Simulated assay, not measured.
Amino acid sequence: MKVTLESSDGQVFTVDKEVAELSVIIKEMLVIEQANQDHPIPLLNVGAVELAKVIEYCEHHRNDPTIDDDEDYDSRKKPIEMDDWDKQFTIVNKEMMFELILAANSMQVKPLLHLGCRYAADIVKRMSPTEIRDLFQIDDDFTPEEQDKIEWEKQWTKL
């Protein structure tokens, strides 16, 4: 069975139902609208470019075992394994990956959301506080005296 999805910018995609159902939101919408599947499912927060990438991800992972519990993704217990395909999939610019994170969150595609967050964490852990503020457009509201005090207080972490 096929499902039709419509991006926020009006582009229509037709995908297999089992692929679409990797999104918790779409799966729930299909249950609610079982009798009326003649029109596309609107995804108001997801543009066509991002939706195409989400569909590509879901197509590849359509046969993966489903994980219903967020606890299974707890990175403190077990890091998320990335296969070669996932590594290639994440070779995109930062803006695209952040848009994919937002799309995965909006559509509730948990494995993609966690993959994107792992990508973001890998980027951020190599950045200085100034670079992180620039990336996320956060104003630096510390006075020079406050910054000096913070630097002095965190000296013990460098031992």
Rank of each mutant, 00 (worst) to 15 (best):
M1F: 04
V3G: 10
V3S: 13
T4C: 11
L5Y: 07
E6T: 06
E6Q: 15
G10L: 05
V12A: 01
V15F: 10
K17S: 13
E18R: 12
A20L: 11
E21S: 12
S23D: 11
V24F: 06
I25T: 15
I25V: 15
E28R: 10
M29W: 04
L30K: 07
L30M: 12
V31C: 05
Q34T: 06
A35Y: 08
D38N: 14
P42Y: 06
L43E: 03
L43M: 14
N45R: 07
V46E: 09
A48E: 07
A48T: 01
E50L: 03
L51D: 09
A52D: 14
V54S: 08
Y57I: 03
E59T: 05
H61N: 14
R62M: 13
D64N: 04
D64I: 00
T66G: 00
I67S: 11
I67D: 10
D68S: 12
D68W: 00
D68I: 00
D69V: 03
E71C: 01
Y73L: 09
Y73D: 05
D74T: 02
S75N: 04
K78G: 01
P79M: 03
P79C: 02
P79Y: 01
M82T: 09
M82A: 08
D83N: 15
D83Y: 06
D83Q: 10
D86H: 05
K87G: 05
K87R: 13
V92Y: 02
N93K: 09
E95Q: 14
M96C: 10
M97F: 12
F98K: 10
I101Y: 07
A103K: 04
A103I: 00
S106D: 04
M107S: 00
M107W: 00
Q108Y: 02
K110S: 08
L112A: 09
L113Y: 05
H114M: 14
L115V: 06
G116H: 04
C117W: 02
C117H: 00
Y119F: 14
Y119P: 02
A120R: 03
V124S: 10
V124H: 09
M127D: 08
S128H: 07
S128C: 08
P129K: 04
T130E: 15
T130V: 13
E131W: 09
E131T: 06
E131I: 05
L135V: 07
F136T: 06
I138G: 03
D139H: 09
D140F: 01
D141N: 14
D141M: 05
F142N: 15
F142L: 15
P144E: 11
P144D: 11
E145N: 09
D148L: 08
K149H: 05
K149N: 05
W152K: 11
E153W: 05
W156F: 12
W156A: 11
T157S: 15
K158L: 13
L159Y: 06
L159D: 13
L159C: 04
L159F: 09
